[in-house]
Design a protein around this nucleic acid. Sequence first.
DNA 1: TATAATTAACCAAACGGTTAGACTAAATAG
DNA 2: CTATTTAGTCTAACCGTTTGGTTAATTATA
Lengths: 200, 200
Amino acid sequence: MSTKKLDEKTILDAAAEEFAEKGFSGARVDEIARRAGINKAMLYYRIGDKEELYRRVILRGQKGMHDAMLKAIEATHTAPETVAAMLAVVAENATENRLTPSIMLREIAGNGKTLPDEGLQGMRKLMDTISSMVTMGVEEGSFRSVDPVTLQFLVTGAVFTLSLTAEMRRRLSPEKPGPVTPSEIAEALGDIICNGIVRR
Amino acid sequence: MSTKKLDEKTILDAAAEEFAEKGFSGARVDEIARRAGINKAMLYYRIGDKEELYRRVILRGQKGMHDAMLKAIEATHTAPETVAAMLAVVAENATENRLTPSIMLREIAGNGKTLPDEGLQGMRKLMDTISSMVTMGVEEGSFRSVDPVTLQFLVTGAVFTLSLTAEMRRRLSPEKPGPVTPSEIAEALGDIICNGIVRR
DNA sequence: TATAATTAACCAAACGGTTAGACTAAATAG
DNA sequence: CTATTTAGTCTAACCGTTTGGTTAATTATA
């Protein structure tokens, strides 16, 4: 028989959904167990307590996003290309897997107080990757000498909020919801970030 | 005697801090009472239950930010001026009063599920104000025809995340924390948003 | 004294976490 | 080949604590 009865992935997926929807304090361990279709005691047997569950889920999500970003970036050659690729992959990832952006926004809102150390490092790694891309663009001569940190937050803040609100916006104003698909989001942002809004 | 012994403001301030730090689920009613220096039963006597507390705190915060924004905007004449003024006032407001950005990011993270209806409308009002500013700029001829919704989230996403992470960034990398004061944040963002990052 | 303000003490429900044991499949012994 | 032990998997039921919310009584005020 090849199918393992209970996959860790199933548990982490369930936990990810619950944490993304309700945050750490709002998430209920019983509900995670229910979603995973197992008994609560099984969570503790397989993974550990609520904090460990949270930690595992964060690390997995961050790693997924960072890996996807690196992979997309390494195929590009010029800085503007890199920006486009990065926006695309972050938007894609943030849309299909709401967890990481959701957690990061919540942690930002709460000053990172519930974020485990490794999660903070992961956040930093994500930011550093963006930062180095800016530096590259500046050195390469295609970018103005903008502050990397500002750009980091411009990109992540906008992509995350746009991705997470896509459904909400579609629901609230179906006639002009703004960009909703990952590619729409990436394209719209790329345009403004690269060229600005002022006519010239 | 003019000083009322117990101000509603004291209670709402205490609640705002607690909600901003821990979100709705994480916030503890006992802790809010403690911060306000009163007995917990007093909260229920004066305001109501936890949800009502949350509602009041949100409405007050949103109104404060929106009023400040309108006031700053009405003194401007050209669209770029308006953008600068709006960035300045939002950054200022978000820095000194973390509640509104913190709540809005959390609500975005949770798909607005705990946000009361009036809070959703307030969010929309904030967005509409930004949106109309864009439209004005486009009609006036000083802005390219960018998507207003994208710009809304570009502005709010970036200002909120930058404001909320200011302390964190200063702590994590004191040598290059990026923009930390409201004016630094507004200026840095204004530059990129208006002119873009691509050299021309 | 009547009314408003305030609190200590309390309560039921919800919650995170544990436990003792049931079930199963494989390994081992007779 | 069968009986017995072993090890891993899984759960119902339970436990102590925390939490939002209430109440009954007390104090201040007019």
